[in-house]
């Protein structure tokens, strides 16, 4: 039978520092386990495609440039990814990794969310091929990002 039972608490809050984090101005590190943006290491990949089979959201595609020399380009759709870590778990060669650094991925269009990982020359080759008339449109002239 009290009225205003939170009185003590709110009074204390008035003189206490607010619990608010000053986020966009002060950026606190995320925990190391954080599942942020996916990174791919083309050097370790063997092209087994296990990650692609297990991806629940169709977020990754592996484009084989040259199977024998193990040259692969991974097209990663950030806008589809659910950051579930399954691909990382499935990969037996540790070539995938979810970053704990890059999790601020907001942007004003969806174009930058299509990311290419691979060796520079392979990506260039692919993009040039895609830019040619009559090529598969879905590859799109997207700005490439290097791993």
């Amino acid at each position: 039978m009290t009225i205003g039972s939170m009185f003590g608490n709110i009074l204390r809050s008035l003189f206490k520092k607010p619990a608010t984090e000053n986020y966009p101005f002060v950026r606190k590190d995320a925990p190391a386990a954080l599942r942020g943006k996916l990174f791919y290491d083309p050097e370790k990949c063997t092209g087994c495609q296990l990650c692609i089979k297990d991806c629940p959201a169709d977020a990754i595609e592996l484009i084989v440039v040259d199977k024998v020399n193990k040259r692969f380009v991974m097209r990663y759709h950030m806008d589809r990814c659910t950051f579930c870590d399954q691909c990382v778990q499935s990969c037996r060669f540790n070539c995938l990794n979810l970053s704990d650094e890059q999790w601020e991925m907001a942007s004003l269009s969806r174009t930058p969310m299509e990311v290419y990982y691979g060796r520079d020359e392979d990506i260039k080759f692919l993009l040039e091929k895609a830019a040619q008339p009559g090529a598969d449109d879905s590859c799109g002239p997207a700005p490439a990002e290097q791993a």
Partner: peptide, 9 residues
């Protein structure tokens, strides 16, 4: 979807 994919779905 496969049994694995369904986990996330």
């Amino acid at each position: 979807r496969t049994w694995v994919q369904n986990l996330y779905l």
